[in-house]
Simulated assay, not measured.
Amino acid sequence: MSELRKELKYLPSHEWARVEEDGTVTVGITDHAQESLGDVVYVETPDVGTSVTAGDEAGVVESVKAASDIYSPVSGEVIAVNEALEDAPETVNESPYDDGWFFKVKPSDLTDLDDALDVDGYKATIDDED
């Protein structure tokens, strides 16, 4: 059973979003996604300063099995990327919600997350896949 966290918002495409105390949004892929992908071997994140749009491709994650696009859950400016993933992409497998985050966004509008799923909605999405 994949780990899910109640404080996160989820996209049906398997990204998670965490609103931080300063109003920024941290983005990564879910435990379910990393399990489905298998061993992650490469992560491409957007550059700091890049503008991202909610629902649009913002990066790529590659594993020994497949490559998947990463979509931004919010529109805004990328203010940080997880540079540790460049040398240690397997961190996504080991710690998808903590050390394996992908990028942080200063959102232009947090209401973008109104359409995201809560933990129960995301659980129903992944249960439907099985």
Score class of each variant (00 low, 15 high):
residue 50 T to Q: 14
residue 24 T to G: 01
residue 90 E to M: 04
residue 68 S to I: 08
residue 83 E to Y: 05
residue 89 P to C: 13
residue 41 V to L: 07
residue 51 S to P: 00
residue 85 L to W: 04
residue 28 G to A: 13
residue 72 S to P: 08
residue 83 E to L: 10
residue 71 Y to D: 00
residue 107 P to I: 13
residue 110 L to A: 07
residue 95 S to L: 09
residue 49 G to E: 11
residue 30 T to I: 06
residue 60 V to A: 03
residue 77 E to N: 08
residue 64 V to H: 04
residue 76 G to L: 12
residue 87 D to N: 13
residue 14 H to P: 08
residue 28 G to I: 12
residue 23 G to C: 02
residue 59 G to Q: 01
residue 68 S to Q: 07
residue 73 P to F: 09
residue 115 D to P: 00
residue 68 S to T: 12
residue 100 G to C: 07
residue 52 V to G: 08
residue 85 L to F: 04
residue 82 N to T: 09
residue 76 G to F: 11
residue 38 G to Y: 12
residue 88 A to I: 00
residue 15 E to G: 01
residue 115 D to T: 14
residue 96 P to G: 10
residue 58 A to H: 02
residue 93 N to T: 10
residue 118 D to C: 09
residue 52 V to Y: 09
residue 11 L to C: 00
residue 52 V to W: 08
residue 116 A to Y: 02
residue 84 A to G: 04
residue 45 T to F: 00
residue 48 V to K: 12
residue 74 V to N: 11
residue 118 D to H: 08
residue 94 E to W: 01
residue 18 R to C: 14
residue 34 Q to V: 10
residue 75 S to G: 15
residue 77 E to D: 14
residue 77 E to A: 11
residue 57 E to P: 00
residue 88 A to W: 00
residue 117 L to V: 04
residue 97 Y to M: 12
residue 105 V to P: 05
residue 20 E to M: 12
residue 108 S to N: 14
residue 100 G to T: 06
residue 70 I to D: 00
residue 20 E to G: 00
residue 48 V to C: 02
residue 24 T to I: 01
residue 30 T to S: 11
residue 98 D to Y: 12
residue 82 N to W: 10
residue 69 D to G: 06
residue 59 G to H: 00
residue 82 N to C: 09
residue 109 D to Q: 09
residue 108 S to W: 02
residue 97 Y to D: 13
residue 86 E to S: 13
residue 73 P to W: 11
residue 55 G to D: 04
residue 62 E to D: 15
residue 98 D to H: 12
residue 30 T to N: 04
residue 81 V to M: 01
residue 22 D to E: 03
residue 56 D to K: 15
residue 37 L to K: 02
residue 34 Q to M: 10
residue 34 Q to T: 14
residue 97 Y to P: 10
residue 56 D to S: 14
residue 84 A to H: 08
residue 108 S to H: 11
residue 116 A to Q: 01
residue 85 L to M: 06
residue 24 T to R: 10
residue 45 T to Y: 00
residue 61 V to A: 04
residue 81 V to R: 13
residue 83 E to W: 06
residue 75 S to Q: 13
residue 57 E to N: 03
residue 17 A to F: 06
residue 105 V to N: 05
residue 71 Y to W: 01
residue 42 Y to F: 15
residue 24 T to H: 13
residue 23 G to Y: 03
residue 85 L to Q: 06
residue 45 T to H: 00
residue 76 G to V: 13
residue 51 S to M: 14
residue 118 D to E: 07
residue 43 V to I: 08
residue 67 A to G: 12
residue 63 S to D: 06
residue 94 E to R: 06
residue 103 F to L: 03
residue 111 T to P: 05
residue 35 E to W: 13
residue 71 Y to C: 01
residue 55 G to C: 02
residue 36 S to M: 15
residue 74 V to Y: 10
residue 71 Y to I: 00
residue 51 S to I: 12
residue 11 L to I: 01
residue 62 E to I: 08
residue 40 V to K: 05
residue 52 V to L: 09
residue 84 A to Y: 05
residue 79 I to H: 04
residue 31 D to E: 10
residue 94 E to V: 02
residue 61 V to M: 06
